[in-house]
Simulated scan of single mutants.
Amino acid sequence: MTRFEDLDRKHLPGFERRFVTVAGQDVLALIGGDGPPLLMLHGDPQTHLCWHRIAPRLAETHTVVLTDIRGRGETHKPASPPDGAAYAKRAMGAEQLGVMRSLGFPAFALVGHDRGARVAHRLALDHPETVTRLAVMDIIPALDFYETATSAVAQDYFYFFFLTQPPPLPERLIAGAAEAFMSHILLGLSNEHPPYDAEVFDAYIAASTTPQAIAAMCACFRAGLSIDCRHDRADRKAGRSIACPTLVLWGEHGVIGRHFDVPSVWAKWCRDPTFAPMPSGHFIPEEAPDAVLDALTTFLAVPA
């Protein structure tokens, strides 16, 4: 048994580990519970383990699917051209849709945090017939972010601009102190005290500091600045919006909460939004799991 398998058995008891092959590539999925299907997508620099304080409870009423998104954890990490095309959220969302269809779920509720929320946002826009309910945590869409970011935002979220530099500059610099870089993000964006289980934190560091994972993270951010913004811009011009009920959560002590009018931004993208600030920094699922669980339980219980 690998280190990661052991952690899953400890922190996500009852969840089955499975590699789902989509277009010839393997995506790690953990499946637990019974009931309406619910896909949960993690952020950076984390893995599916970010849901360990929430997913077992949600599995009491739902069939919960936790994946490692492309480029992270134990999921495949394709090479990408300089613009990050392999990590366009459209491609990443289509891959997650492929996972759910392979598992027998043609439609499902969808929850995402950080990078996972960006994938979820794009999946809901591209495949409205598939996503019954959407919850996004602590983001605003890529186009809104890059159009309105100030110097204060750039100072707090410096890596949104550092990771997008042409390869291999950020990859080489991160490799010189990879553990320190990933730890800085995990600890610097959380509110006051580290909220992580020590073993889970170590797993995040191990998973995110390999050369392949570092390259994938950089490519994903480059896609955010380039391809993802183009896709958002095309949707905005066409007047497309998210059709399903949408719950928007953000950490009131985090960068997004401090610098953006979150309801105003998301109201332009959603036809049926609900807004709920969380008593946390950026890493909401681990900083405020009880508040998140309460919000998600209420939101998911309402028939679509």
Rank of each mutant, 00 (worst) to 15 (best):
T148Y: 07
T148S: 14
T148N: 08
T148G: 08
A149F: 03
A149N: 00
A149H: 02
A149S: 09
T150Q: 08
T150W: 02
S151Y: 03
A152K: 10
V153I: 01
A154D: 09
A154R: 15
Q155D: 15
Q155L: 15
D156F: 00
F160R: 00
F160Q: 02
F160K: 06
F160L: 02
F160A: 02
F161N: 13
F161E: 05
F161I: 06
F162R: 02
F162A: 02
F162H: 05
L163S: 09
L163D: 02
T164W: 10
P166S: 14
P167E: 12
P167T: 12
L169T: 15
P170H: 11
P170A: 00
E171D: 13
R172W: 07
R172D: 15
R172Q: 11
L173W: 13
L173H: 07
L173T: 11
L173N: 13
I174G: 05
I174H: 04
A175R: 08
G176D: 14
A177R: 13
A177I: 08
A177K: 04
A178D: 09
A178I: 11
E179V: 01
A180H: 01
A180R: 10
F181S: 10
F181C: 09
F181I: 03
M182Q: 15
M182W: 13
S183Y: 00
H184P: 11
H184G: 08
I185T: 03
L186A: 01
G188R: 00
L189P: 00
S190D: 06
S190K: 03
N191P: 10
N191V: 07
N191Q: 15
N191W: 04
E192R: 15
E192Y: 11
H193Q: 14
H193D: 12
H193M: 08
H193A: 13
P194F: 03
P194S: 02
P195K: 12
P195R: 03
Y196P: 09
D197S: 09
A198W: 01
A198Q: 06
A198C: 09
V200K: 12
F201G: 04
D202Q: 05
D202R: 11
D202V: 05
D202K: 13
D202P: 05
D202C: 07
Y204V: 13
I205G: 01
A206M: 15
A206Q: 15
A207R: 09
A207Y: 05
A207S: 12
A207G: 06
S208P: 05
S208G: 06
T209G: 06
T210R: 04
T210S: 05
P211G: 11
A213M: 07
I214H: 14
I214F: 04
I214Q: 07
A215P: 12
A215M: 13
A216C: 04
M217D: 12
C218V: 06
C220Y: 05
F221Y: 01
A223C: 04
G224N: 10
L225P: 04
S226G: 13
I227R: 13
I227D: 14
D228R: 08
D228N: 12
C229P: 04
C229R: 13
C229M: 12
H231D: 14
H231P: 07
H231I: 12
D232M: 00
